[in-house]
């Protein structure tokens, strides 16, 4: 092999670059566990102020667990940003405040802070966990409050 030093160095640099994630995870990256989405599910405090004006079906079971979300969990995980985006356009441009879900239900007068965050109260524990992990920085909070009264 000619210019063996340069060629081997080149191959080594290239191999190092394309395998960089392996080295990064082995050194800098923390211990990686799959995100347990059921852990720390926000416990809703029924006494929270303003909670009573939620749509009735979104209200809580007696033990504090939420009865129903506007969409099934799997659907929400993948599509929540599209729903929020569509709501915003509907409310701001068409003055339509109700949401018709894939389950066929119509939910009246939905809001981000006023509805979603009534149950999912803590942005840091609910929104941010997935967003930070996936490197997403949604600009919802440029305008919306990230807390409801009584939550954090």
């Amino acid at each position: 092999m000619h210019d063996a030093g340069k060629v081997v160095a080149g191959i080594a640099v290239f191999a190092g670059l394309v395998t960089a994630p392996i080295w990064y995870q082995a050194s800098v990256g923390g211990a990686v566990q799959p995100l347990d989405l059921s852990r720390d599910f926000p416990v809703v405090r029924p006494g929270a102020p303003g909670f009573e004006d939620l749509p009735a079906d979104l209200a809580l079971n007696p033990d504090g667990t939420p009865r129903e979300c506007v969409e099934p969990t799997e659907f929400m995980r993948a599509n929540h940003m599209a729903i929020l985006d569509r709501w915003r356009d509907q409310v701001v441009r068409e003055d339509v405040h109700d949401y018709r879900s894939t389950t066929g239900k119509t939910w009246p007068h939905l809001k981000l802070t006023g509805t979603c965050m009534k149950c999912h109260q803590k942005k840091a524990e609910f929104c941010d966990r997935c967003h930070d992990r996936a490197g997403e920085k949604p600009y919802c909070w440029d305008c919306h409050l990230d807390r409801v009264a009584g939550g954090r």
Binding site: P21, V32, L35, A78, R133, A134
Partner: peptide, 26 residues
């Protein structure tokens, strides 16, 4: 859309040699 949390599990699993293939990734 797909479940990004599941996608990240797949990618991270590959580079940490603890691979998974969850159905949720789609």
């Amino acid at each position: 859309k797909t479940d990004l949390a599941a996608v990240k599990d797949v990618a991270l699993g590959l580079v940490t040699f603890r691979p998974t293939a969850p159905e949720a990734a789609g």
